[in-house]
């Protein structure tokens, strides 16, 4: 009963849950354009180290970022579960993010997300803006704008 009332009261947002390293992260589904399998990434010389390069996404050249490298984790390990999440952002256009695995889509309301994000000595805290509770597990919610920062020219 209480849950039903909640659905009426608050707006719920869908998140795509992905694995990066051993942790689960959530990406707001509204910025996700699509998800593609791992494919050949062409290196771009002199690009920031956390950008392994670019891919050919149906005739468009799309830069791909490694979430692991950006967050200071060890280098990606390409497996059959590796995916590239293509984000469509207003300022930056299409950008891909390399993740280890795509798990599921969850729906969270604001009340299910813990915004009090106190453990700030961990390196990746600046990239997440809250922790959602999905069943028994915890999902860190990405702050997209912090992860894909615009490159200062």
């Amino acid at each position: 009963m209480a849950a039903e009332l909640e659905t009426l009261d608050e707006e719920k947002i869908q998140y795509i849950v992905v694995m990066i390293g051993s942790e689960q992260y959530g990406l707001d589904i509204s910025v996700v354009d699509n998800i593609v399998r791992m494919q050949k990434i062409t290196r771009v010389p002199k690009a920031p180290s956390y950008y392994p390069g670019v891919i050919n996404l149906r005739g468009e050249v799309v830069p791909v970022m490694s979430a692991r490298l950006k967050m200071g984790l060890e280098e990606d390990e390409i497996t059959k579960d590796t995916r590239i999440i293509i984000l469509r952002l207003e300022a930056q256009g299409l950008v891909g993010i390399l993740v280890d695995e795509v798990k599921e889509v969850i729906t969270l309301g604001e009340s299910e997300i813990d915004r009090s994000n106190q453990n700030s000595n961990k390196q990746d805290t600046t990239y997440i803006n809250g922790i959602g509770k999905s069943g028994d597990s915890l999902v860190s919610i990405f702050e997209i704008n912090a992860i894909i920062d615009e490159v200062e020219v």
Partner: peptide, 14 residues
């Protein structure tokens, strides 16, 4: 190359 890695003078595009 897209805005995020286009700070690269050596490469004019792809």
């Amino acid at each position: 190359l897209g805005k995020v890695i286009d700070n690269n003078k050596l490469i004019s595009g792809a």
